[in-house]
Amino acid sequence: MVQRYPMTPEGHLALTIELQERKSVERPRIIAAIAEARAHGDLKENAEYHAAKEQQGFCEGRIQEIEAKLSAAEVIELSKLEQNGRVVFGVTVEIENLDTEERKQYKIVGDDEADFKLNKISLNSPIARGLIGKRAGDEVKIETPKGVAEYEITQVLYI
């Protein structure tokens, strides 16, 4: 069975753009750098050549990784989901820490889209796993690096 990668439409677009950039800009730039380094002669002691070959390997690996993820992508559009108030992939959820009364808002996204600084958390993160399937008003206990924290889901936004 093929592993599916859940993605938001924005995440799918970002990977598609990265793939195009790597194929049309990065790959030709690296090939040119390799050709230039080759022209300098002895390849055994040519640091520029070895650096360019290493870049090429990384770039080609990333291209293959992106192509695999896009081919197995399951793009989930919130507008097509039943809005029953449950926390599901793609929603933005507001939670309140019951000890500190601190409120945070997170959007639950795919692994490649996760960016904690932008409050986008992976579907596979402990916080998201603890929230999936719950509703506004539910209280959840989530294992954090500082121990178990209790939260109340204050809002589930399908935005």
Rank of each mutant, 00 (worst) to 15 (best):
A47K: 14
L15Y: 06
F58A: 12
L81C: 08
Q20D: 14
P6S: 01
L43E: 15
Q56K: 15
V25W: 00
H12R: 11
P9M: 11
R22V: 00
A32H: 15
A51E: 14
Q20L: 07
A51D: 12
K69T: 04
A35K: 14
L98G: 02
I34Y: 11
Q3G: 08
A32S: 15
I30F: 08
V2L: 12
T8N: 01
K23T: 03
A68Y: 10
Q55P: 01
Q3Y: 14
L78R: 03
A73T: 04
K53D: 06
A33F: 01
L81P: 00
R27N: 11
E74H: 09
K69W: 03
T100G: 09
R38T: 03
I66M: 06
A47E: 15
A51L: 13
A39T: 09
Q83M: 04
L98N: 05
I95T: 02
R86W: 02
S79L: 12
L19W: 03
S79E: 14
P6M: 01
E26F: 09
G11D: 04
Q20F: 04
R86F: 05
A33K: 09
E67L: 13
T100K: 09
E67I: 10
R27D: 08
E74S: 12
M7I: 07
L43P: 04
I95M: 03
R4M: 11
S71K: 15
E94I: 01
E45G: 11
E96G: 01
